[in-house]
Design a binder for these strands. Structure first.
Length: 468
RNA sequence: GCCUCCUUAGCUCAGUUGGUUAGAGCACAUGACUGUUAAUCAUGGGGUCCUAGGUUCAAGUCCUAGAGGGGGCGCCA
């Protein structure tokens, strides 16, 4: 007898599926629900290829009780049968089963997922199983599509994918607390003459850390092969307990030679709009599901971002708008302060009601590498602020003048020797250049409508939690 | 790290002023129903009331400490 090749469930919901009607097919997947009576059972089977389930119709008389009793929520099945137009409402096609093999049972007493809605908080406690739910299937398929679209966007625009290192010796990149990487025996560390830990005995001969940003190495790429982007894991050892922070997250950092701050803003806006457009075009079913189940405004919000230009606003004007707004803030605004969440939300969600790019920030509250403006007070940094999420992008035109950069680092009492390799970009053939960092999971918050960043990554890392 | 709220059945939650044997819906089991759509209907089993102390004749309920979780804030992407 001829063996039938497996069909993925997504292929039963596209146009060419019509050719399969009336033919014997083989489907493999996990049971979402089973219902029926003593004559017939209906199984909703899902293989992860799409959010849609295929309905398997089982004539009870044709199968042994042993097989039937093992078909429970979560069990994995291999089903052969005839693809037919459905007799019932709710689906166009279904499979009339002729053979059912149970690959793996799921004990109903102990399998945590039920054929009912679960809270996101409960699912976080069983993060190893939550990808089997509709919600996480949808989110994680969208996550893949966004990752792919990022590479497509940059590749099509002539950017090169640049691999900044994960392990770094830069101990104060300025972006946050770092996780230390060591092979030393922490119970018995080697000591130097001063009685401190002797890192010359460590694996790399010096103290090393997980990267908090690939930017500095990215600038080496931009000042050599022109336009690069990084896309990799990033680590911050901050004790951050919010729905917008992770200890391990993914960041996209483009860096471009000969781009000024305006080119940088143009790129950031075009990039985000491309990704949102890509999601709407390629993740329709999953986004529709999330729209229906979690956030009725999701699709409207995504489409509105595509239509509108982002507001571009100097920091000084933002302070002006905030102080004249008549709005009561917990913390009063004044020039020179960093903006609080409440201020950002007012600008984005109330005053302008669309994404806002804030530029020309006071130099005291921004990083050392940002290009200094002629006013002596501000730098060419840019923050892209989104509704609900806040800062989704942070970037700047970089200071290309060697002397200005050194002076700023001295003001900040930085260890210049450790940045010698970085400063060589300004010593030799320095050029105007710009770049930014986009938080991948924050983008996903926006695209999926999820409200907690721990729900848009398969295995979230945050303080006191690394179980799965 | 700070502020705040929460923790009762597998899940989601009620539980009155501190008072007898702690309830419901869903899930699960059994039964009914020739086609269901998170099927429906009937019956049934199922509890370390987060943990440790304390107050009281009596604590799920009040007090103290701790653990875990949610939301807000800070750090930032």
């Amino acid at each position: 007898m001829e063996t039938i090749r497996r069909t993925e469930i997504k292929d039963l919901f596209c146009d060419k599926a019509k050719e399969l009607v009336g033919k014997a097919i083989k489907i493999k997947g996990w049971v979402r629900t089973k219902r029926g009576n003593k004559n017939v059972a209906f199984i909703a089977l899902n293989d992860g290829s799409t959010i849609k389930n295929i309905q398997i119709v089982v004539d009870i008389a044709l199968f042994s009780e042993d097989v039937l009793k093992n078909i429970t929520t979560g069990a994995c099945l291999c089903v052969e049968g005839l693809l037919v137009e459905s007799m019932g409402k709710g689906q166009t096609v279904e499979v009339q089963a002729t053979q059912v093999e149970v690959y793996g049972i799921a004990d109903v007493e102990t399998y945590p997922l039920q054929k009912k809605g679960h809270t996101l908080e409960f699912l976080r406690e069983i993060a190893h199983l939550r990808p089997r739910t509709n919600t996480f299937g949808a989110v994680l398929r969208i996550r893949h599509n966004m990752a792919f679209a990022i590479h497509k966007y940059f590749n099509d625009k002539g950017f090169f994918y640049w691999h900044s290192p994960i392990v770094t010796a830069s101990d104060c990149e300025g972006a946050g607390e770092m996780f230390q990487v060591t092979t030393l025996d922490l119970e018995n560390t080697p000591k130097n003459e001063a009685g401190k830990i002797d890192y010359t005995k460590d694996f790399f001969g010096q103290s090393t850390y997980l990267t908090v940003s690939g930017q500095l190495e990215g600038e080496l790429g931009a000042t050599s092969i022109g336009k690069i982007y990084t896309f990799g894991p990033t680590f911050r050892a901050e004790n951050s307990n919010t729905p917008r922070h992770l200890a391990e997250f993914w960041m996209i950092e483009p860096e471009m030679a000969f781009y000024d701050i305006h080119d940088n803003m143009d790129l950031a806006e075009d990039f985000i709009k491309f990704l949102v457009r890509y999601a709407l075009d390629n993740c329709k079913d999953d986004i529709q599901f999330l729209n229906d189940m979690y956030d009725k405004e999701l699709i409207i919000r995504l489409e509105s971002v595509l239509k509108e230009d982002f507001i571009r606003l100097p920091y000084t004007e933002a302070i002006d708008i905030l102080s004249k707004s008549g709005q009561k803030f917990d913390i009063q605004v004044s020039w020179g302060m960093d903006l609080q969440s409440e201020h950002e939300r007012f600008l984005v969600e109330k005053h302008f009601n669309r994404p806002v790019i804030l530029i020309d920030w006071p130099k005291e509250i921004k990083s050392f590498y940002m290009k200094q403006n002629d006013d002596g007070k501000t730098v060419r940094g840019m923050d892209v602020l989104f509704p609900q999420i806040g800062e989704i992008i942070g970037g700047s035109e970089r200071e290309a003048d060697y002397n200005k950069l050194i002076k700023r680092m001295q003001e900040l009492d930085m260890n210049i020797d450790r940045y010698a390799w970085y400063l060589d970009t300004r010593r030799f053939g320095s050029c105007p250049h710009s770049g930014f960092g986009l938080g991948f999971e924050r983008l996903l918050l926006f695209v999926t409508g999820m409200s907690n960043i721990r729900d848009v990554i398969p295995f979230p890392r945050f303080p006191k939690n690394a179980t799965f």
